[in-house]
Design a protein around this nucleic acid. Structure first.
Ligand code: MN
Ligand code: MN
Ligand code: ZN
Ligand code: ZN
Lengths: 150, 150
DNA sequence: TCACGGATGCAACTCGTTTGCAACAACGGG
DNA sequence: CCCGTTGTTGCAAACGAGTTGCATCCGTGA
């Protein structure tokens, strides 16, 4: 019997990249694998991740360095993260500057994004990000900026 | 007699967008127009901009909202800015995660970047960013992270 | 089972950016 | 040319994402 979705299993991913299989890492990976959208550290915390925030930051950095997760910067300073294996192929993202939500956009017609651009000599590319910022459907015209909960 | 480069003149730009022509704004625009690369608030400060940092932030936000400058986010949380009229056409950027330098890349062969992607209904696009992160020529292999001056 | 090196938690910190508020100055009307 | 309105600036304080130092902990490989 073999596992379904083996390529995206937390423990296998960690083993393949020679990372210790610790509880925090597995929990974070499970969350990321389940998510159909890119999420933030705050998303992880507010959805009941028990560990320290610092652990989350460090874990995501590690996973990013190993190419396991993709890091998506925003102009607000908050980074979003998504599993590379789940969010395939590489696609553009839409960031609403009003409600600060991140949406995955359909992959570009015409194949691999990387293929478009030719990088000058001497640059070592790690990651490619295409993102569009603007106002999402709910915010179009009616800003909702920064309502504080509680 | 007519001005050369009239389309990029600070006072004209401000007038066209109905913004008051104040000293700080003109100074910042002049700096941006002269620069062949995208720059940060710190760049502006360290190159002798006299005004308060807050003024720079507010000015850049205003210019961004009016579509005069382009805002380029990075995973380190620092935003870069470039004059839209000077940095034409819209092109990808390379960000070195080691020395944190931003480089303009040649525009994509094959025309306008915007043309590639089709946006789902209900999304109002403001800005498009294509950026590649990795290691630049000077950092390739030899990290220089965060040397503090003085 | 043991020892070692990497991973975690906690507290403090860094730094880019925002906000509140009072003083100020650009600009259009008189 | 002056004046009042309204948008802009400076200052101080706050905010928030992310990092760092250090002691403890625990996964891993032997
Ligand atoms: Mn995505
Ligand atoms: Mn550029
Ligand atoms: Zn929105
Ligand atoms: Zn570099």
């Amino acid at each position: 019997m073999e596992k379904k979705d083996s390529h995206c299993d937390p423990r296998e991913v960690l083993e393949r990249k020679q990372l210790a299989r610790t509880a925090p890492r597995i929990a974070i990976l499970e969350k990321l694998i389940r998510s159909d959208r890119a999420i933030t550290v705050n998303d992880l915390v507010s959805e009941g991740m028990d560990m320290d925030r610092v652990t989350i930051y460090r874990t995501l950095n590690t996973l990013r360095d190993k190419g396991i997760v993709r890091e998506i910067p925003t102009s607000s300073g908050t980074n979003y993260y998504e599993m590379a294996c789940r969010h395939n192929p590489l696609h553009p993202h839409f960031y609403c500057t009003s409600c600060r939500s991140m949406t995955c956009l359909p992959p570009l017609a015409g194949g691999e994004m990387k293929a478009w651009l030719t990088l000058p000599e001497g640059l070592l590319a790690r990651d490619l990000t295409v993102s569009i910022s603007g106002l999402c459907g709910r915010c179009d015209g009616a800003p909702v900026r920064k309502e504080k909960e509680k």
